[in-house]
Design a protein around this nucleic acid. Sequence first.
RNA 1: GGCGGCGUAGCUCAGUUGGUUAGAGCGCGCGGUUCAUACCCGCGUGGUCGGGGGUUCGAAUCCCUCCGCCGCUACCA
Length: 656
Amino acid sequence: MAQVNSATDKFYITTPIYYVNDRPHIGHSYTTIAADCLARYHRLQGQQVLFSTGTDEHGQKVARSAAQQGVAPQEFADEVVEAFKLMWKRLHIEYDRFIRTTEPDHVVAAQSVFQRLVDSGDVYLGQYQGWYCVPCETYLRESDLEAAVCPQCGRPVEQVAEPAYFFRTSKYADRLQQYIEEHPEFIMPTSRRNEVLAFIEAGMHDACVSRSRTEWDIPVPVDYSQSIYVWLDALVNYLTVAGYPDDQQTFQTWWPPRVQLIGKDILTRFHATLWPAVLMALQVPLPGTIFAHGWWITEEGDKISKSKGNVLDPYNIARQLVDISNATTAVAVDSIRYFLLREVTFGLDGSFSWAALLTRFNADLANDLGNLLNRTLPLVERYLDSKVPQPGPGAGELADQIDKARTTVQQAMAAVSFRAALEAIWQLIAAANKFIDERAPWNLYKHAKLVELEAVLYDVLDCIRVIAIMIQPFMPAIADEIWRQLGLETTGTQQTWATCQALQLPPGIYIQPGAPIFPRVDIERSLKRLQGQVEAGEETQPSAQPPPVTITMDQFGKMELKVGTVVEAHRVRGADKLLRLLVDIGEDQPRQIVAGLAEQINPRELLSQQVIVVANLEPATIHGVQSQGMILAVGDKEPIALVTIDRECPPGSTVR
RNA sequence: GGCGGCGUAGCUCAGUUGGUUAGAGCGCGCGGUUCAUACCCGCGUGGUCGGGGGUUCGAAUCCCUCCGCCGCUACCA
């Protein structure tokens, strides 16, 4: 496995800057949690860390969105920035710099970069002809298009023909290719690296790096009729944070980033090609590793995905977890952080399910980690008057296990393999639990083997201390709580990686037992409850088993069911399962309804079909398309058959 | 269409350069223990490593082919 770590005392790590047109969601959160975890890990190591995240605020899309809301773009951006900052605070993310592309130092940096590229001949004035997708802020070639829509988002593109500046990406293609080939750790994971190499191999076009002047964007320094292309503008943020171009001392200190985390969508075109090529042109060192991770999607057929678009917002999930488990919010948030980094190999896509989350919560957090603490402290309370004993002879028996875990975690973290790191920590937890069973301190007490008893309990407490440190990057609040319960907070002892060794727990301090950190969850009952919540507003479930709840006639009466005739049916672009239907239910306009039927039913079969529509269902936007109702279909998770009627009825007829 | 990847126990996945009886966690079964949130510890259950063919003394691991899934890329004059 490629290692991204090397022995220096500086660690600069970045997330992408997030486009302010979006509210924070799991995509942003996942990247930022992972970055926070790496940042915390390197801080533990005693390294100086610069962890940056921020917002990308320029671009036509922002200007237009602001205009639509009747506010100035800056005001619009300010508001979204607050939403991001709040989210990061809630998710226990501690960044060092929140950079906004509208900040003065960034504007200076972006213009300076542009100027230098012009001076070096890497940027030249040309003529741009082609299309532009405003929502994606992406230039498209004729060949990229399907009809007149963007291949990525399916929305209409705009034709542009104007003078524009181009960056000579082509000039750096060979060097870049060679660099990637010679540095396996530069683009990770390997599968992505292959894709990038294939992309470069296919031939690189010079990239358009300016647009005709807009008020909102950063002007091109040499030509005020032009603005800097928002993607170039955005990429420069990584330089800005490191003090480019004027603060040479800061720049020398931090540059280049050791790790840049991004989502897989912005790897090929931007971070793996344009970005390093620009750095080459600027004669600035390249980042150590650009790591592209995958996406979180909802489990296939999972009803949760339908209920609300924001359900995959980690903080939202945490709040629901609080309801289910009675854990504190801080614990729930850390549990989500744990789940996200433990469940799926970093780099691959993952599917979120409550069953998986709750299983991890019970098995890993409550049973293994939480219970280790909660079985140990009472022993110390009872047998040793809550006082951490002297290690004494025979102590240090878990030293080998601790060393092994420490080494493995180090290797894993150096390879950005969160999952492997957590597995190693959990092996240590298991070792500690086993150690207690084998040494049975309650028997030692019974037989008055006090020296041995003290040694055993010391070892376990000491091991818990090490575990608290090791989990700190992943679950900072929980690490602190364990620290507190061990009585270490009162001593001012710091969590440092160097002390992840046996026999470092100061004797003589008093433990401070608290309530169990992870209240165990009744998974089956919780899943049913979650399912119920979702289905309440969704669908009468034709369940094989008798439904556990009854509804009143009155409740049933609130549901407006109508006969509808399908007048149009198309697939939703970019969605495998979704059909966009226009259904006449006797109103002035046919209803637009999105249905997850595309895998089972050909849209053509649906034309003129009569269906049953839930007419007063709260509208929802699914995959960017508004759905103003629901079609009844048979099937628990996947639709099997459509509910229809045995003779023709006028659209809009009431169903009772 | 081209390139790349994946398909391993009921579920989620590890399996280094081919080498003794294919591993982990969860689940399930049995036993132990009682300090603990019915928890922990031990043992066990369970796989024709997608199908077929080939190379080899020997292949989950290399080659070919077929099937299924995914990603990137290109859309055919």
